[in-house]
């Protein structure tokens, strides 16, 4: 594992702790998009089905289990939050889920000549999870644009997700050059996903960094 991948993963991990800290210490899910969190849970469950059939490393296994468990817990907390004033969580997620699923059925890494049907279904779900992750942040972005007083911690959460994506891009450049490793589906979707965060970082710069006490 190279340093870019590791920094990316740690930033991803930090994003979970930031969001959990916000939910637990402020006892409020205001400004957190339940739709985005439910999409992330879907992403992790679909992608990490290989937990059952492929062992890569303890690092990977534990991170996967943590991502699934933490996002399930976050969805539970946000969904059951009584003081949930998320009327602005209005993104039509079917416009994300259905195209991602259709695309995954046609553009994936299945090899029907090899492997059984279950492995190929896993490949379709893997591609679906990649496409869905690329756009899963959109409901959260829409909320950020609509809410005036977004708490800083939600913004830091988004920033750590953006850093995670940026370092994964660097990781892929490194791996393509030194290892010949490359998954075009993941790379193209990853570039799209990272570009979506560019919009967020403009907002972050304007609303958080410019307001920081000196």
């Amino acid at each position: 594992m190279n340093i870019f991948r590791f920094v990316g993963d740690m930033s991803h991990l930090a994003s979970f702790f930031l969001l959990l800290a916000k939910l637990i210490y402020t006892k409020s899910s205001t400004g957190v998009s339940l739709k985005t969190q439910a999409l992330y849970l879907t992403v992790f469950v679909c992608r990490y089905l290989d937990l059952l059939v492929a062992f890569v490393s303890w690092y990977n296994e534990l991170m996967k289990i943590f991502f699934i468990a933490a996002s399930a817990y976050i969805v539970y907390v946000v969904a059951t939050s009584t003081r949930n004033s998320n009327a602005s969580d209005t993104y039509r997620v079917e416009f994300l889920v259905i195209p991602a699923l259709v695309l995954a059925c046609f553009v994936n890494e299945t090899h029907w000549s090899k492997g059984g049907w279950s492995l190929n279904v896993m490949e379709i779900l893997w591609a679906f999870s990649i496409y869905l992750e690329a756009v899963a942040v959109l409901p959260q972005l829409k909320m950020l644009h609509q809410l005036e007083d977004t708490t800083n911690i939600t913004m830091h959460y988004m920033a750590s997700l953006g850093i995670y994506r940026a370092f994964y891009l660097l990781n892929w450049v490194y791996r393509l050059y030194y290892e010949g490793y490359w998954h075009p589906i993941a790379v193209v979707a990853g570039i799209v996903q990272t570009l979506l965060y560019a919009d967020f970082f403009i907002l972050y710069y304007q609303s958080v960094l410019l307001r920081l006490p000196s």
């Binding site: 991948r5 993963d9 991803h12 990977n60 090899h111 994964y168 490793y181 490359w182």
Partner: peptide
């Protein structure tokens, strides 16, 4: 390498 490379990322 490329095609069919193991998926060892998160």
């Amino acid at each position: 390498a490329a095609e069919g490379a193991a998926k060892d990322e998160l």
